[in-house]
Design a protein around this nucleic acid. Structure first.
Length: 848
DNA sequence: ATCTCCCGCCATATG
DNA sequence: CATATGGCGGGAGAT
């Protein structure tokens, strides 16, 4: 081994020598001196050879190395000369070491093969680097690369020199959870947005300005050091090692993973990752070489992660071209259900066993993180983002002179993560703009999370996002200040949902596609920007074919990789006020059509139910035009209960989906009834702000139950759901049809009962939002979480975003009431129309 | 040409 | 000091 080392070092030297000699035309001449001086290791000649050989063929090189091990310097030399000349021409090509076969990925596979994924306590395996390097025939250096990444995931930990312990994937769930949490705290999402945003701008006008950037970046240079995320049980032993640095690769690896866990489509392009990993420390250091190096490292890391099946390579295509990226294919990591106290115990569990069921408190705490008291608007990246947004608005409005208030506190970001029965999950990011329209959807998507599959394993790549649907929301642009529409209390938002277009959502397993109705503009956007995904607005008449196999569209879709998409909010033409009427009428007719279809579909569904049975899934048509696959849509608590239990069981076996909230969250029959969403169970998985943002609303006890509408029979969670979905555009307002032709204009409801729940129409056009409770009843634990919901307000009362926000993040009487957002919660504000959006490019992800 | 990323020099840390 | 680690970037296969 040492032998190898020495000559290598000299290779460089010899290069110099060689070069110098070039002019002499005697490149092969061996400098006599050194040769004699070190009989043990004839470095110069060897080096020369090495160089030549390596240039000629890696195969030879390796042979050379082998020989070298058993050598007698002179002989080796001879041999090499021979081999060099002999082999150079021909056979060298085939033997073995095509570069690929030496890839870190492959090596990693070999490495991993040596140890069990889930080593039992008994078979605690140790890793001796010397052995490994020898057995795998690799240079030590390479092993370090692997081990470092594994360390970052706590799959191994160092004991001492040359010695590591193998933990396998036992810690993975916790690690990922922890990483995700940190990732969120680091505001990676925003940073990513920021980067994309920046790129976008550069595209628009290459001669962009960078002063603003710099300025904003100065804002704060806090947080995120080279902090390595550790787990309670798995700290760096050999504590001394812990003393900073020398964890770069590890840290980088963790951060890289964080990016996946945090970003919504779990896809991260190398470019973005590199930028974030760099920019995190140095501000705006667009050093080219540094970037390259970062990329190199990322590839290294990615190779290991790939071997671990945690990520997979894909390509993201956008205007700029095809960019390398990776997609997370590891276990789904739910919002931090990580509790330091629980880790130790859970670590001891055997393979698939998940962490113990989190305590109520802990769960709630995680669901609504509230520790970060600091106003997140202070975060530099966010400020940047906001500035960018302002820029956009300026551009869009083409009214550069219009006063643009830079008030960062006006922006609020939050993520909504709804879970639908059979695993269809709606995940999105939205943004509030205080003083403007309610919100804009930054991104949203559906993905399939098979929590009720018994056979689920980490290879969730087949499952996750296979049927992902990401529909870029058509976000209305802000209206020019010149023509404010203060008189129009109801924002553009509701209006934009007045009509829907069916869209097909492929289903990976059953081969069934689901139709989802989206607003035309959305559908359009989708089709336009996600060609690869084949979101197709279909003529209503055709939608009936839930499982149609004749539709080429469908065929294509099912063939397509579900994750070929990624679409983000795209600037779209705002709905002009004038257009609204027409839209509506059109909508009405569409609704009718749809409803009739709904019936048909329902039948179809039933007919096909048998097929679905195997999956324990069935389709149900949601009368609002939202078709969702459901698991025994039921209707009663019983089913729910059993399901829940099943889910619970499942979770025990599959840590990946073990989160208690992954399971079915039952709603009582009464709830369903009230809500009028008979077959539609939605579980608000988490509604949270960006980490550390404004005070979140932590759980509440019963007190809250009564806080706002105790008397009201409405189901809080449903309210919330309606509210969200509607504004998100998933549920068209006033689906009920012509009955309420002018929904958009007529602020509905004055009573809680008819606000939206009674007639099944979701037209909650406006109203006050108040805090409400979500019932989480899983595994015997019944919990209530405060969330928002609509409360009927006085007719004609304009929208009060402030209230929305307030109630969204605030809990009456809760620890965080009177949060940072606004000083007086009861104060309502008027808002003008408009919306913000974050321009993003169309993306297309391709498998490799 | 671009994407990947192996190789191995050499600065540092460790013992 | 000898070794063990691992940062880093040249430059060569892969595509």
């Amino acid at each position: 081994r040492n032998i190898l080392k020495t000559p290598l070092k000299q290779a460089a030297t010899s290069q110099v020598v060689l070069t110098e000699r070039q002019p002499d035309c005697q490149p092969l001449t061996t400098p006599p001196k050194p040769k004699e001086t070190s009989p043990a290791e004839p470095w110069t000649p060897t080096s020369n050879l090495k160089m030549l050989i390596s240039a000629a063929s890696p195969e030879i090189r390796s042979r050379e190395q082998r020989k070298q091990l058993s050598n007698s310097s002179t002989e080796v030399l001879q041999a090499k000369h021979c081999s060099q000349e002999d082999l150079l021409g021909d056979e060298y090509e085939k033997s073995q070491p095509s570069r690929k076969e030496k890839s870190l990925g492959l090596l990693c596979h070999k490495f991993l093969a040596r140890y069990p994924d889930y080593p039992s306590a008994a078979q605690k395996s140790y890793i001796c680097l010397d052995e490994v390097t020898e057995e795998l025939h690799v240079e030590r250096r390479r092993i370090y690369d692997i081990v470092n990444v594994l360390e970052s995931l706590h799959m191994v930990s160092r004991l001492a020199r040359n010695r590591y312990v193998w933990h396998g994937r036992h810690n993975l769930p916790q690690t990922l959870q922890a990483l995700k949490k940190v990732g969120e705290e680091n505001k990676y999402i925003q940073q990513i947005q920021m980067i994309k945003k920046r790129e976008y701008e550069h595209e628009l006008d290459p001669d962009s300005e960078r002063n603003e950037e710099t300025a904003s970046s100065l804002g704060s240079s806090e947080q995120s050091e080279m902090s390595f995320v550790e787990l309670p049980g798995v700290e760096f032993r050999a504590a001394s090692v812990n003393g900073r640095k020398y964890k770069s690769l590890r840290v980088m690896s963790q951060k890289f993973v964080m990016l996946f866990l945090v970003s919504t489509p779990q896809i991260v392009s190398l470019e973005v990752a590199a930028k974030i990993l760099i920019g995190e420390d140095q501000l705006e250091d667009l050093d080219k070489s540094k970037f390259k190096t970062k990329i190199r490292r990322l590839y290294d890391i990615a190779n290991v992660l790939s071997s671990l099946k945690l990520i997979k390579k894909v390509h993201v295509t956008e205007e700029r071209g095809r960019k390398p990226a990776f997609k997370w294919t590891g276990p789904e990591v739910l919002p931090y259900i990580q509790d330091t106290k629980l880790e130790a115990t859970s670590t001891a569990c055997s393979p698939p066993v998940s962490e113990s069921v989190p305590s109520k408190e802990h769960f709630s705490k995680n669901l609504f993180p509230s520790k970060g008291k600091q106003n997140f608007t202070r975060h530099s990246s966010l400020i940047k983002l906001v500035k960018s947004i302002e820029n956009d608005r300026r551009k869009i409005q083409s009214a550069p002179t219009s006063p643009v208030k830079m008030n960062t506190s006006r922006y609020l970001f939050f993520q909504v993560h709804f879970k639908v029965r059979s695993g269809l999950t709606l995940n999105m990011w939205a943004c509030f703009v205080v003083e403007t329209l309610p919100w804009a959807i930054l991104s949203k998507q559906f993905f399939y999370t098979p929590e009720n599959r018994q056979e689920i394993t980490y290879q969730s790549e087949e499952m996750q996002m296979k049927s992902a649907l990401s529909s870029p929301e058509a976000v209305p642009k802000p209206e020019p200040p010149q023509q404010p529409t203060p008189s129009q209390p109801l924002g553009v938002c509701p209006a934009s949902h007045s009509s829907v277009s069916p869209v097909i959502l492929p289903h990976p397993h059953s081969g069934v596609s689901y139709a989802i109705y989206l607003h035309p503009s959305q559908a359009h956007t989708v089709t336009t920007y996600s060609p690869g995904f084949m979101l197709q607005p279909l003529p209503c008449a055709n939608v009936t074919g839930i499982k149609s196999n004749n539709s080429k569209v469908l065929n294509k879709i099912t063939t397509e990789e579900g994750d070929n998409q990624i679409a983000m909010a795209e600037p779209t033409k705002p709905l002009a006020v004038g257009e609204r009427p027409e839209m509506k009428s059109e909508t009405s007719s569409q609704r009718c059509l749809k409803r009739s279809q709904a019936l048909q579909e329902n039948n179809l569904i039933k007919r096909h139910r048998g097929d679905e049975e195997s999956l324990g899934t069935s389709l149900t048509f949601f009368h609002s035009g939202y078709l969702i696959p459901l698991t025994h849509c039921a209707h009663g608590t019983k089913v729910d209960r059993s399901n829940r239990e099943k889910a619970g069981t499942c979770s025990l076996q599959h840590p990946t989906y073990s989160s208690p909230i992954t399971g079915v969250i039952p709603m009582t029959a009464s709830e369903l009834k009230t809500v009028n969403i008979p077959a539609f169970h939605i579980t608000p998985l988490n509604i949270m702000l960006s980490p550390n943002s404004i005070a979140a609303a932590p759980v509440l006890s019963n007190s809250c139950l009564n806080s706002s509408n105790a008397s009201s029979a409405q189901n809080p969670s449903s309210s919330a759901l309606n509210f969200m979905l509607q504004h998100i555009g998933l549920i068209p307002a006033g689906v009920q049809g012509p009955a309420n032709p002018v929904l958009q204009h007529v602020p509905v409801s004055s009573q809680a009962e008819n606000t939206s729940y009674s007639s099944g129409n979701m037209n909650v056009q406006e109203g006050k939002v108040s805090t409400n409770i979500l019932h989480f009843d899983h595994g015997g634990l019944s919990e209530k979480y405060t969330t928002f919901s609509l409360q009927p307000s006085a007719p004609k009362e304009p929208w009060e975003p402030q209230a929305v926000i307030e109630s969204f993040f605030r809990t009456p009487g809760g620890p965080n009431s009177g949060s940072s957002l606004s000083t007086n919660s009861d104060d309502t504000k008027r808002i003008s129309q408009g919306t913000l959006y974050i321009p993003q490019r169309k993306l297309e992800v391709l498998e490799d």
